[in-house]
């Protein structure tokens, strides 16, 4: 069974065609890096997988575990196992990180007919994950992303990834704005998440992140299509030659 299959997907935002017939297959246990120049449609791919409003699928289809998901609302896609680490995490003032994480876990458990996590065990687990990400436990009491630094926001996304354990993680430029130490912490987090049952779609501008999270496949997205696929060697080639030779 494939984990994710994107078939001939075309997507418009406000009547501008962004994706133009994109194909992608992710099997369980695989990490796919999506690279490409600015404006090629990388973030659009991430958002459309998560079901963001205003992204209109004009043709093609998206399948998760062989079920069609285009008609699912964003929260239903989350219930089905899709996770998006945001490029620009939003603030939710007054709602503590802890409260938010608990609400998220509770909703996911409810949607999947699983028992709600016990509050004590939950707390312990969150604290432990926070520690592995070098996040001060005090940070859990603060409002979601409220006054967080850029690095804290990105680490917070990874904390959510590790806590929610989705089947498919889509990371939208999680490396942008991180210094080298934070980048390593984030990469370690993603690596500890990886297993044979889940998959990662890693969207990035730079080859640098791929030194820490080693992908099984590298795809180059240009003008709304995947124009080249290869292994990690492709990323190194791109680092040297840029994108121009492909487009």
């Amino acid at each position: 069974m494939t984990l994710l299959e994107v078939k001939d997907l075309s997507v418009s935002v406000a009547d501008n065609a962004i994706l133009k017939g994109l194909n992608l297959v992710v099997n369980p246990g695989e990490v796919h890096a999506i690279m490409g120049p600015n404006g090629s449609g990388k973030s659009t791919l991430a958002n459309v997988l998560a079901g963001k409003p205003d992204y209109q699928v004009t043709s093609g289809s998206i399948w998760l575990n062989d079920s069609n998901i285009e008609d699912l609302e964003p929260h239903e896609r989350a219930h089905a196992g899709i996770f998006l680490a945001f490029q620009y995490p939003v603030e939710v003032p007054g709602v503590s990180n802890m409260e938010f994480l608990k609400a998220s876990l509770d909703c996911l458990a409810k949607a999947r007919d699983e028992p709600q996590p016990n509050a004590g065990a939950f707390l312990k687990r969150v604290r432990k994950i926070a520690q592995t990400l070098d996040l001060n436990p005090e940070f859990l009491k603060r409002g979601v992303n409220e006054g967080f630094s850029g690095g804290e926001k990105k680490r917070n996304e990874i904390l959510q990834l590790l806590l929610l354990e989705p089947q498919l993680a889509v990371l939208d430029e999680t490396d942008s704005g991180l210094d080298i130490d934070a980048l390593q912490v984030v990469a370690q987090g993603v690596n500890s998440y990886r297993n044979e049952n889940n998959g990662v779609v890693l969207i990035t501008h730079y080859q640098r992140l791929l030194e820490y999270i080693v992908p099984d496949y590298v795809h180059v997205l240009a003008d709304g299509k995947i124009v080249q696929s290869g292994d990690k060697g492709l990323a190194q080639e791109l680092e040297k030659k840029g994108y121009a030779w492909l487009t």
């Binding site: 929260h75 896609r77 938010f100 949607a111 929610l164």
Partner: peptide
């Protein structure tokens, strides 16, 4: 959208 993406 951010909340919904986390299943809420």
């Amino acid at each position: 959208f951010a909340c919904q993406q986390r299943g809420i």
